[in-house]
Design a binder for these strands. Structure first.
Lengths: 204, 204
DNA sequence: TTATAAATTGAACAACGTTCAAAATTTGTT
DNA sequence: AACAAATTTTGAACGTTGTTCAATTTATAA
């Protein structure tokens, strides 16, 4: 059945087109301003069509969130050329921070906004993107431990602590909490704070 | 003019009543479900009246956010009975974590949601609550340094790093990112990770 | 009692997510 | 090529949201 195949491909293409339009608006106008109507208008389809391909707005946001993880995962993948786990861990933090800085709305969608998680709850699925990313980090931390670092520390809490530290900085920055606190060196505070962290783990 | 005074007091009381109703719904139903209409209904006034006392929803959210800082600040104030700055720093983290855990919606409003910051930008005001809270933390970190800790570290980035670490854990937990990552010990991960952090700074 | 000022109301507006019967298009059959 | 069935697309309509503001009600002053 060549027809069924073509239809399936067309469905996939339209689904992709919707996400493409959504992402474009997302980056341009931010998550708040990205409405179903604006997405439909951007790709010259009606609102009804969008709802054929996505059950609701949360489903669209979850799909975008998944795309974000694919992109971040791709950036992490490069780091596995770094053999020294400690150096790799440090580089992961820098990549993470740069990703958050370059894609603030996407970052929020991936790590702060509840919509993607609510979608997962609704369809009873797991957060496999998050689990995979966490595992990548945890594996690196474990290799650091095997290399003699982080003595006396537990793997899982230690991994979560490191994630939290970097996420916290990005979250505060994106949430406009850093620039409002009247720091002496407002811009670059994230990088400076991360450097302090690196100084610390260098001794662990 | 006794009348003018009474009027002023009545205005303040109604303003307070609106916030009280808003906070009640806020805690009960969450931020998403707290609408202007529901606030008005909760206190038996019309929507129009709410807009006499607050220029828009952001103004209400900002006022609630301010109340949140007053509450957290009150909890921090107790800690100044702890003379040892290192012990105080550790206790501040615990208080912060507990506050976030007990008041998740309020916490998000204070440290994640953009509405309060947008209100400040709109009326061209400073984030004095955030600045005050940050200063309290920074002062404690400074006293730790004066007591011989954190040698070779810079005050401001170090303070921001510590804030980020604790905020990051709370943010991930509230944003439902911890329970979805399939941790071996999902509940208590925040406390466990914080313990790892305490182990680290004990050596600094 | 009456006129002025202040406070309160709620209908109305635009925009949102969402639904669904109807219209338009594509497919399969004769 | 013509027609029926299946599929895809449409956009008007519904309920809610934040917000506005002329009209109403209430309180004050003369």
């Amino acid at each position: 059945m060549g027809v069924a195949e073509r239809k399936a491909k067309e469905k996939e293409e339209l689904r992709s087109l919707i996400l493409q339009g959504a992402k474009k608006l997302f980056v341009q106008k931010g998550i708040e301003q990205t409405t179903i109507r604006s997405i439909a208008e951007a790709i010259d389809y009606s609102v009804g069509t969008v709802y054929v391909y996505f059950k609701d707005k949360n489903a669209i946001l979850h799909a975008l969130h998944t795309q974000g993880f694919a992109e971040l995962g791709g950036q992490f993948a490069v780091l596995f050329n770094v053999t020294d786990p400690m150096e790799r861990l440090k580089a992961m933090g820098r990549v993470y921070i740069r990703f958050a800085h370059d894609n603030p709305d996407m970052y929020e969608l991936m790590f702060s906004i509840k919509a993607p998680m609510e979608f997962l709850n609704a369809v009873n699925e797991e957060w496999k993107e998050g689990k995979a990313a966490f595992t990548v980090l945890q594996t690196t931390v474990q290799q650091c431990m095997e290399a003699g670092h982080f003595d006396g520390h537990r793997l899982e809490p230690m991994t979560f602590m490191i994630w939290s530290l970097v996420h916290g900085m990005c979250s505060l920055e994106i949430g406009q909490r850093t620039k409002s606190v009247n720091l002496q060196e407002a811009d670059g505070i994230v990088e400076q704070a991360y450097d302090e962290f690196l100084k610390i783990i260098d001794k662990l």
